[in-house]
């Protein structure tokens, strides 16, 4: 496992060696804060809370995380560096974990750079700090699961466009399963227990608890096991 460090370092710094990181960070922050202000009514609600900021994260991640994750493996395949990487003394699992953790760390940086929002609510009112902390935790965990899915689809193709579209589709399904509008459609066709079961596989269902300040081990386990499972499939896809 010691081989994770150099690859992690290269990958993480790699984001900042190209304009990708800066474009991504700017777009992510503008979009997430913009949604909170203009659609979420951040000021209008007159509450010292970041709920109107976090509520859009599942939807924002749906497009932005595939954009960050699509190149993970498809870029290596297209440029041939995958051959270089896998003839270095490193196992597939180490390479998958190193690249995943680097991308996750980068996304965590992006999420945490929204800290001026926290300062704003702290300055204007008296927010519940526990809720804010748990919302950040949930958001970071959810980003990991989205990224796991994107890393997997990226390993299936050398074409970044295909990788992006597949990622968005897969994440869309995982998100929709828990969306109330979509669920009420399902309710008219399927029995309640089945709809509830399906909703349990959704990002949104598990993320909502975090935004209410509840850190349920069940939700943590869901995100971590979904991430673990997609990374396992990722290793299988690369070794095939």
């Amino acid at each position: 496992m010691s081989q994770i460090t150099p690859v992690f370092k290269r990958e993480f710094l790699g984001y900042f060696r190209s304009p990708v990181a800066y474009v991504f960070l700017v777009v992510f922050l503008m979009a997430s804060v913009g949604l909170a202000f203009f659609i979420g009514g951040f000021f209008r609600t007159n509450l010292a809370s970041l709920e109107s900021f976090f509520v859009f994260h599942p939807w924002l991640f749906l497009f932005l995380i595939p954009a960050a994750g699509m190149r993970l493996w498809s870029e290596e395949k297209r440029t041939g560096t995958v051959e270089l990487l896998f003839t270095l003394p490193i196992t597939t699992l180490e390479a998958v974990l190193a690249k995943f953790f680097a991308a996750w760390a980068f996304l965590t940086v992006a999420i945490l750079l929204s800290f001026p929002m926290v300062i704003t609510v702290g300055y204007l009112g008296d927010p519940d700090w526990g809720v804010i902390a748990s919302s950040y935790l949930g958001s970071i965990l959810m980003a990991g699961s989205y990224l796991g899915v994107c890393s997997l689809t990226s390993a299936l193709t050398r074409n970044q466009v295909i990788s992006f579209v597949l990622s968005v589709l897969a994440c869309l399904v995982l998100l929709f399963l828990g969306w109330s509008v979509f669920n009420s459609v399902l309710h008219s066709v399927f029995p309640v227990w089945l709809v509830d079961l399906l909703a349990n596989f959704s990002f949104a269902t598990h993320f909502n608890a975090f935004t209410k300040g509840i850190i349920d081990p069940k939700d943590v386990v869901f995100f971590l096991s979904l991430t673990g499972f997609t990374l396992f499939l990722n290793v299988v896809a690369l070794e095939r």
Binding site: T79, G80, L84, L88, P89
Partner: peptide, 24 residues
């Protein structure tokens, strides 16, 4: 490898430094 693939966004020094680290 054929056509010598390398991480294009890195400098020569950074790239060889990375290879050295993976080579222990």
């Amino acid at each position: 490898p054929e056509s010598a693939p390398a991480y294009g966004e890195m400098t020569v020094e950074e790239f060889l430094g990375f290879i050295a680290e993976t080579r222990d």
